[in-house]
Design a protein around this nucleic acid. Structure first.
Lengths: 148, 148
DNA sequence: CCAAACTGTAACCATTATGGTTGCAGTAAG
DNA sequence: CTTACTGCAACCATAATGGTTACAGTTTGG
């Protein structure tokens, strides 16, 4: 399949925090929306907090809120905060040094893969959480109109 | 980590086939260069054959060769031939339909992730196996020169 | 005709990542 | 002092991955 769904969860959570930024949300509320569970949400929001994207407060009435404005958080920010490794995996083992191809392939591939990943990340950086909230509200408004 | 290393193996193998395109290579030779084993190589080359990139001949003296010219095979071709799923994973479960964010997030993310993946694939499509062989030979030539 | 050298597959294994879950300590508010 | 949170360790089931063995089928060379 590919990477984990952590990026999807992170972006989902950030969008919720931006959508209801007048109050703080609990990990249980976010887990409900994700049809997941609070511990998983806290794990991922913990990574986002380490990256300085969200804040958490403990104790009763605590919860999570954005540390930055929605327009200051890109999908790329969420992605790098929660996704550890590279998208395109390199050789499992270093290839044979005895082979002309083997001893050069890693370096050649490293360049190609890195640039391909950067292209993807650059594209992710073009959309912000604010963009998602705006589109979200547009869709909801149109739905409300058609249900009149 | 991320995706499998199948793309790396596939590109490695294609580069070997292009480098020594006067003869056919066996899965054992390619496995040697990869410091891996023949069965794994045959599995991946099998995918490349299904994609029409390589040919195999059975029996004694058999092996693998390119079905196209090296300049007609891009890294993207190898990537799509061996990599099944998308790079960026979507939600593990469909989110809650009761939540305003939940019921819209999948569609919004689908657009963003797809475009990001396309940016990556577009970049992979810009390099061909012929490019890799050329760079490979350049490096080897320089090494030979400095060892004089 | 037979042995050697290949591909093609199925089956299996160990390791790892992932999502999910339980349990519990710590903290803050009412 | 109880309630409602976060924080975190521990654990589980599942799936993907790379690796390996085994063996049937195919082609060539002697």
């Amino acid at each position: 399949m590919g990477l984990s769904s952590r990026s999807a969860v992170a972006i989902h959570a950030l969008t919720m925090l931006a959508r209801w930024d007048d109050r703080s949300l609990t990990s249980a509320e976010i887990a409900d929306s994700l049809a997941s569970n609070p511990v998983l949400v806290r794990r991922i929001l913990g990574s986002l907090r380490n990256a300085g994207l969200v804040l958490s407060t403990e104790g009763r009435g605590g919860g999570w809120s954005l540390a930055l404005k929605p327009r200051e958080i890109s999908l790329h920010d969420a992605y790098v905060a929660v996704e550890p490794g590279p998208v395109l995996s390199r050789h499992a083992h270093p290839p044979s040094d005895a082979c002309e191809v083997g001893r050069n392939m890693q370096a050649l591939l490293e360049v190609e893969f890195r640039e391909a990943e950067q292209a993807m990340e650059e594209r992710l950086g073009r959309t912000t959480i604010a963009d998602l909230v705006r589109r979200l509200l547009t869709v909801e408004r149109e739905l409300a109109g058609s249900n009149r």
